[in-house]
């Protein structure tokens, strides 16, 4: 099962050339994406462009389809209409093999962390390595230590996921994502349910991963401090569409009424939103 062998450079995850320059070309592109479950429209012609190397924040009330959007990006769900591009590859309608290739470049941090319950922390982090590379056990172990060190979880190496707190699980899940040497990382509410200190901690980690590995990230959250700490640009999604999109700095001071309302903590009122 070594169909997919990620490149193992001397420093794993060598930064993409031109990764830092915001304003570079779009790496991820969603064009007019529609998605409904039964009769329930979740996404209504959503357009989005994420540039290479940036951390793009998607902000919005819960239940607007932010997780659905991320799942569409990795082909776990199929859009009803619209196009989804990652680099030059089209995700919707991709065949199994293409999808594998695309997923090989993407790391996904699940809202629930999604650690394999019956494997230890170390075995979870080792999964991408033991499954897709021909590294020897001691080499894998070394890598695992390295990634666990990066997320400050080395002390829990031999624990089971069930023994960890929510924040610890997220960090282990991040280590597992990093072990897959992705160039794109999707974070689904990485700070949901965490205390402010841990939130700050995770946000800093996301920032440092971006700087160190030059990854392009999409960060779904409804946590403002986390968004402003880690994000380069922010899009506000509601009613299945991008309502407003700007750089983090300007976004936080926008006078767009729906965004202001959300930033103030009230329920946003979007004219024409289907709800």
């Amino acid at each position: 099962m070594s169909d997919r062998v990620p490149p193992i450079a001397a420093t794993p995850l060598a930064p993409d050339p031109g990764a830092t320059a915001a304003g570079a070309e779009a790496l991820i592109r969603l064009v007019g994406v529609h998605k409904a479950f039964g009769g329930k429209h979740v996404l209504n012609g959503l357009d989005l462009e994420v540039r290479r190397g940036e951390t793009f924040v998607i902000l919005g009330p819960s239940g607007t389809g932010k997780s659905v959007l991320l799942k569409l990006l990795v082909g776990l769900l199929k859009p009803d209409r619209g196009e989804i591009w990652v680099g030059r590859q089209r995700v919707d309608g991709a065949r199994d093999r293409e999808l594998w290739e695309i997923r090989g470049r993407i790391g996904y941090l699940f809202q629930s962390s999604a650690l394999i319950n019956w494997l230890t922390v170390a075995e979870n982090v080792a999964l991408p390595l033991s499954e897709h590379t021909r590294l020897r056990p001691h080499e894998i172990d070394q890598r695992v230590d390295e990634y666990l060190g990066k997320v400050h979880m080395l002390q829990s190496k031999y624990q089971m996921p069930g023994e960890l707190s929510g924040g610890q699980k997220r960090r282990v899940a991040l280590a597992r994502v990093l072990a897959g040497t992705p160039t794109i990382i999707l974070y689904d509410e990485p700070t949901a349910g965490l205390d402010p200190v841990m939130t700050q901690n995770i946000a800093a980690l996301i920032r440092s991963v971006q700087l160190e590995f030059g990854v392009t990230s999409i960060l779904v959250t409804h946590d403002l401090p986390c968004a402003s700490e880690a994000g380069d640009r922010v899009a506000f999604v509601d009613g299945g569409k991008v309502v407003h999109c700007d750089t983090t700095e300007q976004f936080m001071h926008t006078d767009h009424p729906a965004v202001r309302n959300f930033l103030r903590g009230g329920r946003p009122v979007v004219p024409g939103a289907p709800r």
Binding site: R103, Y108, S112
Partner: peptide, 16 residues
């Protein structure tokens, strides 16, 4: 249980 807790999705994204 693995399915409803997104562990199966996680495996698929790891191409396992």
């Amino acid at each position: 249980t693995m399915k409803v807790s997104e562990e199966i999705d996680a495996l698929e994204i790891l191409s396992i």
